[in-house]
Design a protein around this nucleic acid. Structure first.
Length: 259
DNA sequence: ATGGCCTGATCTTCAGGA
């Protein structure tokens, strides 16, 4: 079984590449982030034509997540139970479902913007709520994983130059402590292999030739419980999908499971 | 040449991304 996560940066803008990639990669379950569409604009029919069911949590131009699966999609939960509000609303940042033998979450963790910004405090609260919401499944016997754009680089090695990030979000101790909390809850960081260079970056800024210069970050993560991690036979970042016109600024992270 | 972007909506300018 092949499962992947991909921040597509607008599913509308990415639809031709998304459909082509699903077919060429043979992905069974895809966790999607930043759909940037209203739920009714999500391309349910185009995906159904390829054999995929969809579970969508999206409300408009910002954020939005989805799960698409061709191996079943049951017990869908929309949103993060107990999750915090930002400016009075629960933003669409989580959706979970059971896809065949695996329980899967697709998450888009808040960015944080600046460490002094209210959005940063919200990011930390959101991660606390995530830990509470997944605790039971994380400790369970069924293969379980939380995949998505965490907007956190787990270590200094997960950015191209840590010096550039002094005082910035994505690399702070509280953010990394939140990831450690998920690991303490029973989830392991399933680190993919890079297809080129020595580090599995998953995001490269559109600006300043970030991709050609490999100025990347590893912020799209797969956190799986013990049964999930033990079933992993391979994992890699499909950097080919970051190339060319019409690419997202994130590449898909692919995980193969023996389940 | 030492910089270089992309998205959708508020739509020719902006906020947000990280």
């Amino acid at each position: 079984m092949r499962i992947a996560t991909w921040n597509v940066n607008s599913i509308t803008a990415r639809l031709p590449r998304l459909l082509a990639w699903l077919e060429s990669s043979g992905t069974d379950v895809l966790c999607i982030q930043e759909t940037k569409c209203a739920a009714e604009q999500f391309p349910v029919e185009e995906l159904r034509a390829l054999g995929y069911e969809s579970a969508v949590n999206a409300t408009g131009r910002w954020n939005g997540v989805a799960l698409v699966s061709r191996v079943g999609l049951a017990d869908v939960v929309t949103g993060l139970p107990g999750g915090p509000e930002y400016e009075g609303v629960q933003e669409p940042r989580a959706v979970s479902a059971t896809c065949g033998p695996v329980r899967v979450w697709s998450v888009y963790v808040p960015n944080g913007r600046e460490v002094t910004h209210e959005h940063y405090a919200y990011k930390l609260r959101w991660l606390e709520a995530l830990k509470a919401a997944v605790a039971e499944d994380a400790a369970g016997e069924r293969p379980f994983a939380v995949l998505g754009d965490y907007n956190i680089a787990p270590t200094d090695e997960d950015v191209w130059d840590i010096g550039v990030f002094e005082g910035a979000t994505h690399v702070t101790e509280p953010e990394r402590a939140a990831l450690a909390g998920l690991r303490e809850a029973g989830l392991a960081d399933v680190v993919p292999r890079p297809l080129k260079y020595d580090h599995p970056f998953t995001y490269w800024d559109y600006r300043a030739l970030g991709f050609p210069k490999n100025k990347g970050m590893r912020i799209d993560l797969v956190y799986g419980n013990k049964p999930f991690a033990e079933a992993v036979s391979d994992s890699y970042v499909d950097r080919e999908e970051r190339k060319g016109k019409g690419a997202s600024d994130h590449a898909p992270v692919v995980v193969d499971l023996d389940v």
